[in-house]
């Protein structure tokens, strides 16, 4: 389990990184935390000609509130996100979701940007950021552009990022941030890939009626699934067992996950419905509590 030969570059600045990507991006690969990629490399499941190590791009390691957004630098370690008081205050669902990513040790190396670009179908960050309606800044030597996450994930491990591009920042809109939130995940063991994960944001008025909601599910498709039509069913209503059942069924109605070792298609869809129900209930409870305390 030793990797095939590769050239190694370690830029000290974003500009240098972009230059390297322009030249080597086609047959090369970026290396951030390496928690997903190094095993793939060692097992020779991927044999890039060059590795561009961006771990030293300190300019991409930050968490800040600016212009109505929570802005996170791509090379920010997941553990930093998890422990950030700012994030806990402004976007608590991110803290909750991040605690499910692997283990403490892997979160100390894994990066926020890395997780987004790696686009594992069950990953927590892509799912949660999608629910938060986040967008990303993407740079290359020639241009800088923004992309909303709803169009960003194409399929397994594939985003619309091009070989010569670098994801530099993730922005989460803070206006209209929901009061209620919940992240639910089911995995075989603590720290394993989620079989199914659900992120939910919910707002509730003084009488307990749902006024808005966003929900996304990971693990039932090649990319996280944003459930818009289904969540509309909740608007103007109070929660009930049957309503939650209907919402769950609507979310998964077009999903066709494959059977795998740990979950059959039927079981996975069942898990999705169970977690959707639990996430909505938890988010609702938190929204009510937060509303009461305001």
């Amino acid at each position: 389990m030793k990797p095939a030969t590769f050239d190694y570059y370690r830029p000290d600045s974003v500009v240098e990184a972009l230059q390297l990507l322009e030249e080597y991006g086609d047959e090369g690969k970026l290396l951030a935390g390496g928690q997903s990629f190094i095993p793939i490399l060692n097992m020779r499941m991927s044999e890039p000609e060059s590795l561009i190590d961006i771990n030293h791009l300190k300019e991409l390691d930050y968490i800040k509130e600016e212009d109505g957004y929570l802005k996170i630098g791509a090379v920010t370690r997941q553990s930093k996100l998890e422990k950030s008081p700012l994030v806990k205050k402004l976007v608590p669902i991110l803290v909750e979701a991040t605690s499910f990513i692997g283990h403490i040790q892997t979160r100390n190396r894994g990066t926020v940007g890395g997780s987004v670009v790696h686009a594992d179908p069950s990953a927590e960050l892509p799912l949660t950021l999608l629910t938060l309606d986040a967008k990303v800044t993407i740079k290359s030597m020639d241009e800088e552009r923004e992309a909303n996450l709803r169009d960003f994930f194409i399929t397994y491990l594939t985003t619309e990022i091009m070989p010569s591009e670098l994801l530099t920042e993730i922005q989460i809109p803070l206006q209209h941030m929901s009061n209620g939130y919940a992240f639910e995940e089911f995995s075989r063991r603590h720290g394993d890939f989620a079989l199914v994960a659900v992120a939910c944001l919910l707002d509730v008025d003084e009488v307990g009626t749902v006024t808005s909601g966003r929900l996304a599910v990971g693990g039932i498709d090649a990319v996280p699934v944003l459930a818009e039509d289904a969540m509309d069913l909740l608007i103007g209503k109070k929660l009930s067992e049957s309503l939650l059942q209907t919402v769950g069924e609507k979310v998964v109605e077009d999903a066709e996950p494959d059977d795998d070792l740990h979950a059959s298609k039927e079981y996975r869809l069942n898990l999705a419905k169970v977690l959707i129900k639990r996430a909505i209930q938890k988010a609702y409870g938190r929204a009510v509590k937060r509303g009461d305390s305001l």
Partner: peptide, 13 residues
């Protein structure tokens, strides 16, 4: 064929 799928209990289990 890897520890992703061959699941050994860890301390948390």
């Amino acid at each position: 064929g890897s520890f992703m799928d061959y699941l050994c209990p860890t301390a948390t289990e």
